[in-house]
Design a protein around this nucleic acid. Structure first.
Lengths: 226, 226
DNA sequence: ATTAAATAACTTACTGGTTAGTTATTAAAT
DNA sequence: ATTTAATAACTAACCAGTAAGTTATTTAAT
């Protein structure tokens, strides 16, 4: 925020305070971070571009030098903030040492950590709410995030079945079921969690849920125990 | 719908066509139904009161004769459209013939039917999205719907444990886990379902999920594992 | 029964506030 | 001196909520 010049120029050599800097490279990332924060707190529709600009330390006009409109801003948030984490999860899933169940639990835990410590968990809520109003954005998210996430867990489930670790379930439906408690945690933390008096630990809930689901998936009632 | 006067007044005693009727008793329910439809399609923020009024066959001013503001309209939707269904589920749960697992599956199926055949499934999405912007409404929903729903399933889980049908799990967390796939179905059907090319059957997903969760809950075949 | 007065239901047109997006101008950098 | 980055002030549109005015219905008097 620019300081108003409160005193007269006693020393003429005093460097004049800069009102702003040219920082073409740094802006986009800062704007995206600001937008994520604003969208997370108020939702897409209710978030104000003036507020996003202020969080990024600029003014609204400057936003439009970097993004053509509000919708593009949301898309950029998903692309630059969410997708790298998904890629990381895929890397984790590609390691094929040990039991698949352990891997699933590890990935779930990792996502739980992101939900608890970053504003990224707000993105599902935002996309859910606006899918109907922004078809292009919805399709992009469906392909780039949801489809990819389902494929990730679907592949793991297939691996578990092939290894004799899981029963012969439907991989697609099972992937959705694994994601359900994780997604629910993300939604809860970004909506009602603030209002509940007896808090409930998100990481613990995810761990319990995955554990229970894996029990339900376990291949033999008495055969091999991983 | 009022007929326009197509012919000149040959008979001066012709009654003028009525432009509208006074229907104080029928309005609130019609308005609530219209509001649910509009909120479901566009979300709370993006829904227009003019559109809601038009769906209800009235004009915007009339809305304000029955509801003080937009927020009250949403609260009325929850109260008059959602709560009765919750009460019905509770009635179903109170029957204590047969296995608890069967009862849980029956209730889940029933909720799945509501999601598939009514716009009620849109309410979770709406509440999720707006919880942060309407604290009073959020607290009301948290108590009147979420808390009540969790209590319902929590009670069933406790019954299952007491009957030796389930392992000694945490009832609260398990209730959330049971709800997760149901909730996810409701959210999916009201956001991304319209965009997916290979449709997925919501009822089938709920059934598979509950089945898998119940397997995970099943008391150990022989020795009990805490 | 008719008519007139009173009331209740509804509509129409407007207001005030809000906000996405635009543009004229200014400041910094080269 | 010119170009680029940024601001600040502006516009156009939208929309929740309001209130003045209109039409239907009810009540009461003749």
């Amino acid at each position: 925020m620019p300081r108003a010049p409160t005193q007269a120029a006693a020393e003429p050599k005093r460097r004049p305070p800069k009102r702003w800097h040219r920082r073409r490279d740094a802006r986009p990332a800062e704007i995206v971070a600001a937008a994520l924060g604003a969208f997370a707190e108020r939702g897409f529709a209710a978030a104000r571009l003036d507020d996003i600009a202020a969080r990024a330390g600029i003014t609204k006009g400057t936003l439009y030098l970097y993004f053509p409109n509000k919708e593009a801003l949301l898309k950029a948030v998903v692309e630059t903030a969410l997708l790298p984490n998904l890629a990381q999860a895929e890397t984790l899933a590609a390691r094929d040492a040990g039991a698949v169940g352990t891997l699933v639990a590890a990935i779930a835990t990792q996502i739980g950590r992101i939900i608890a410590t970053t504003p990224l968990g707000a993105i599902p809520k935002i996309m859910l709410a606006e899918a109907g109003n922004f078809p292009d954005l919805a399709r992009f998210y469906l392909n780039a995030v949801i489809g990819r996430g389902l494929r990730l867990f679907g592949t793991l489930v297939r691996r578990g079945i092939a290894a004799g670790e899981f029963r012969a379930v439907d991989p697609e439906a099972t992937a959705r079921l694994i994601i359900a408690p994780i997604l629910m945690t993300a939604l809860w933390q970004n909506s009602f969690a603030a209002y509940e008096e007896t808090k409930h630990d998100p990481a613990d809930f995810i761990a319990r849920s995955i554990d229970l689901v894996l029990r339900g998936l376990a291949a033999a009632p008495r055969g091999a125990q991983p």
